[in-house]
């Protein structure tokens, strides 16, 4: 016999899951629409938007759109480009931004407040509004590459990486996190004679898993999914183009919507994988704090 308490708990649980599922539907329906549409021929796709069929794999289902996009766009090349650009930027960004944030959060130095204030102020500047001046800047910078010293960074990987490494959001994220860490850890290490860099590496990094994971995901997204105007301006050669430019390849006078959906599905996969991979960092940290629902 079950006690009334248990039944109540069960009802509560069911309600809780129902709510979670209802919210999930709100978030997932355009994505289901995208994936289902990627399996349909254009005409059917468009007719289906009139009904709930848009969310169902019904009618003339095939992978034809997926085969077709490889004909139209160098998909693999673009994805690898994006992964390389994004991966390099994220790695360098995590290192340099956390290092700077460490300095802002724990060290006491002249000019710290004003520099931090200026950095935070740059959060305000939308990229679109400085794109053209930035183009002028990178076009006048030297580069040492295989061809020796050259001027101007256009048409390369590094022009898509270096300007994006340091950003205020990432620094800010780390600063806010570091500020909440107990100061006595650092005091103790200082007394033991550790250098600042050693403290950063041996004391701070090991306990900062969650913020690194968060920063990595956010940066990855910005670099992978939201890079659009900049590559348009600085890349003239197909070999360096990232995935979002590939989307433009589909917008001809008569758009092949099924292919667009297939391309969107394919290019979204790497980000999802990256997120799932890093999600473990959240899970373990949640487990360690042991918050009860």
């Amino acid at each position: 016999m079950s006690s009334p308490d248990l039944t109540l708990d069960r009802i509560k649980l069911i309600m809780r899951y129902s709510f979670l599922i209802a919210v999930a539907l709100v978030f997932v329906f355009p994505i289901v629409f995208m994936v289902m549409s990627s399996l349909k021929p254009d005409l059917q796709l468009l007719v289906d938007t009139n009904s709930l069929r848009a969310f169902l794999p019904v009618g003339d289902i095939s992978l034809d759109n997926y085969f077709a996009i490889f004909e139209r766009v160098p998909v693999i090349r673009f994805i690898l480009n994006s992964i390389f650009i994004t991966g390099t930027t994220v790695a360098l960004s995590l290192f340099l931004c956390s290092l700077a944030a460490f300095s802002f959060a724990f060290l006491d130095w002249k000019g710290r407040e004003i520099v931090l204030a200026i950095i935070l102020a740059t959060l305000i500047v939308p990229f679109e509004t400085i794109a053209v001046p930035l183009l002028m800047v990178v076009n006048n910078l030297p580069w040492f590459g295989l061809d020796g010293l050259t001027w101007g960074w256009l048409n390369s990987y590094h022009v898509q990486i270096i300007p994006w490494i340091a950003d205020a959001l990432t620094i800010f994220l780390f600063v806010q996190y570091f500020k909440d860490l107990p100061k006595d850890l650092i005091e103790a290490a200082r007394i033991d004679g550790a250098t600042w860099f050693q403290i950063y590496r041996k004391v701070i990094i090991p306990i900062s898993g969650p913020v690194f994971a968060t920063a990595a995901i956010l940066k990855f997204l910005i670099m992978y999914s939201h890079q659009y105007i900049w590559p348009l301006m600085v890349i003239q050669s197909e070999e360096f183009r990232p995935v979002m430019i590939g989307l433009q390849y589909f917008f001809q006078l008569n758009v092949a919507w099924g292919e667009v959906m297939a391309y969107l599905t394919i290019v979204t996969l790497p980000v999802l994988v990256f997120y799932l991979f890093l999600q473990r960092a959240f899970i373990t940290s949640i487990a360690s704090t042991g918050i009860k629902g």
């Binding site: 460490f102 060290l107 400085i130 930035l134 990178v138």
Partner: peptide, 22 residues
Amino acid sequence: AAGWGMASPAIVLMSLFLIVPF
């Protein structure tokens, strides 16, 4: 010295690619 040293790579990058263009 340590503070500037650790913050400077990020500061230099941000100056060059955000502040100068602005």
